[in-house]
Design a protein around this nucleic acid. Structure first.
Lengths: 147, 147
DNA sequence: TATTGTTATACTCTATAACTATA
DNA sequence: TATAGTTATAGAGTATAACAATA
C-alpha cells in the first residue's frame, strides 16, 4: 500500500492539520453555532449540568471567558444558569432542550460533511483515516490529563 | 490490524477532529501568532507577494478582514504593503524577513508538537496518521477548487 | 483567607455596508 | 461603471486584573 511520500514530515502533517482546521471551522460556523459554543454545548450534552469553573477548566479557557460564553449561549436560549444549592457561590450550567437539539443537528451536519470528504478517498486511505483520527484524539486526551 | 471500534462513525470522527482543532489551536497561539496570521503568512512564504484581494480570496475571508489582518501584521513587522506599479488601485502584500523567520519557527514548533503526539502511538497507528492526514488535506484542497 | 463568579478593559478575528480612488 | 482597498460598525472569542459574595 502506498503511504504517500517516502517520508511524511511533521511539516507536511502540520500543513494538513492546518487545512483540516480551516475546513472544520468553516463548516462549523454555518448554522450559527461557533466552535467554542459547540464544544461547550457538546460537553454539557455528554456530561450533564456542570459548574461554570468546572466547564472553564474542562474547555481550557479562562473563567471570565466562560462567563461570557455562557451569557451569550443563555441569550441564544441554548443553556441556562441554575443556582447550586450546595454552594451559594456556585452556578450550574445546563443545556436547554433547544440547546441539545441544535447541537445534535449541528454535529450531524458536520459528521456528514466529513463523511462526504472521506468517501472521496480510496478504500485504504479511508481505513487509515478511521484509524488515525480516533488514535490522535486518544493521545490528546491522555496528554491533557497529565501534560 | 485492529482499526479501533467495529464501525467508526462520522460522529466519532468529528469528535476526534474537534479535539485536534483545539489542540492545534492551543499550540498555535503560543509565540504570538494567531491561526489567521499564521495561515496568511504561510501563503505569502510559499507563494510570494500577492494582491490583498487575491490573499483574501485564497484565505477565504472578506476583503475588510484581510485589510485589518494585514494592518495588524504590518504593525507587528511581519509583512509590508507595496504599491502595485501596474495598477494604481492595487496593493501587494509581502512577508518581511522577520515574518518569514517567525513563521518558520512557529511551524517547526507545531510540527514538533504533532510529532511528539504521534510518537506516543503504536507503529501501525503512526503509519495510519501519516497516510490519513495528507489524504484528507488532498480532498479538502480538491473540494476547495470546485465546491 | 480561599474560592466562585462577574465586571472592566483590551485585543484579535470576523462580517456587512458605506465610502474613496483608480481603471 | 466596475474593481481595489479602506473605514465604520458590530459581534464573537479570548485574556488579565480587579471586585463582590460566599465558604
Amino acid at each position: 500500500m502506498d503511504t504517500g511520500s517516502p517520508e511524511t514530515s511533521g511539516e507536511d502533517l502540520i500543513i494538513a492539520v492546518e487545512q483540516m482546521v480551516r475546513y472544520v471551522r468553516q463548516s462549523a460556523t454555518t448554522g450559527g453555532l461557533s466552535t467554542a459554543a459547540s464544544s461547550a454545548l457538546g460537553r454539557l450534552s455528554r456530561e450533564g449540568p456542570q459548574r461554570l469553573t468546572e466547564l472553564a477548566r474542562a474547555e481550557n479557557v479562562s473563567q471570565p471567558n466562560m462567563t461570557q460564553l455562557v451569557t451569550r449561549m443563555e441569550r441564544a436560549g441554548l443553556v441556562r444558569r441554575v443556582a447550586d444549592r450546595t454552594d451559594g457561590r456556585g452556578v450550574l450550567v445546563e443545556a436547554t432542550e433547544t440547546g441539545l437539539e441544535v447541537f445534535r443537528q449541528r454535529r450531524a451536519e458536520r459528521a456528514e460533511a466529513l463523511e462526504r470528504l472521506i468517501a472521496q478517498l480510496p478504500e485504504p486511505e479511508q481505513r487509515a483515516v478511521r484509524t488515525a483520527l480516533p488514535a490522535l484524539a486518544r493521545v490528546i486526551r491522555k496528554h491533557r490529563e497529565r501534560p
